[in-house]
Simulated assay, not measured.
Amino acid sequence: MGPRRRSLLALAGGSVGAAGVGALLTGCTDGAGDGADSDGRASADERVRSEAARGSLTLLAHYDATIAAHPALANRLRPLRSEVARHAEAFGSPPPSASASPSATHEGSGPRRTVEVPRDARKALTALATAERRTADARTTALATASPELARLLASVAASGAAHAYLLAESRT
């Protein structure tokens, strides 16, 4: 029997990002989901993972459009955008490079959407905080249908998104 989950988490020391936690906990399963049940679970997890990746890509489009429309906010937003890009990667979707247009587009499996950014910088930050909060809430809701491994990743990324929303709201002042 290998190291226990708590030992692995203690080694992580809380400094591992969402992608690292997901990779670290990959082997933490109880083996109870064998056979047909695991096929159904894998399919459900793939749908949840795909939706989470699309959520991250949509957030990236919001960040890119906001940075392009308000270059003065770029230094504040780039670290958060970088984290969102890591979240997209953790869910299996390589993030696109930053867009230079004020209304960035998001290409996913759905229709092409344009992100409109308010002209006022404070309102733009509010819109970005709202997008982060909405995405974090969707990930929290998805916890109920995810496998334990994926649920841990979703919870971690949802917490990060909630922190981003808080930081964006605080940066408006």
Rank of each mutant, 00 (worst) to 15 (best):
P3I: 11
A65E: 02
A151P: 02
A121V: 04
E149Q: 14
L57P: 02
L167N: 08
S103T: 10
K123L: 12
A104M: 03
R4S: 13
E132I: 02
R133K: 15
T29F: 06
G35E: 13
G31M: 07
G35F: 11
A142Q: 09
S7Q: 12
A12G: 15
D30Y: 07
P118F: 13
T135H: 08
A146L: 12
A65D: 08
A151D: 00
S101E: 15
L150F: 05
R139P: 00
T29K: 00
R133E: 10
E116K: 06
V115R: 09
R172G: 15
L154I: 07
L128T: 04
A146Y: 03
A144S: 15
R6K: 10
S43R: 12
S97M: 04
P95C: 12
A52W: 03
R41L: 12
H62A: 14
A19P: 03
A23V: 13
R134E: 06
E51G: 09
R54H: 14
A146Q: 05
H70C: 00
V84W: 01
T173G: 11
P95V: 08
R133M: 04
N75K: 06
T105C: 01
S82R: 15
D64G: 07
T140A: 14
P95N: 07
S109E: 10
T26M: 13
H164F: 04
R139V: 00
A72H: 12
A90H: 01
D45R: 14
Y63G: 13
G31A: 12
A68E: 05
L25H: 04
A44Y: 01
H70I: 01
E132V: 02
C28S: 12
E107R: 09
S7N: 07
A158L: 09
A158I: 08
G22W: 03
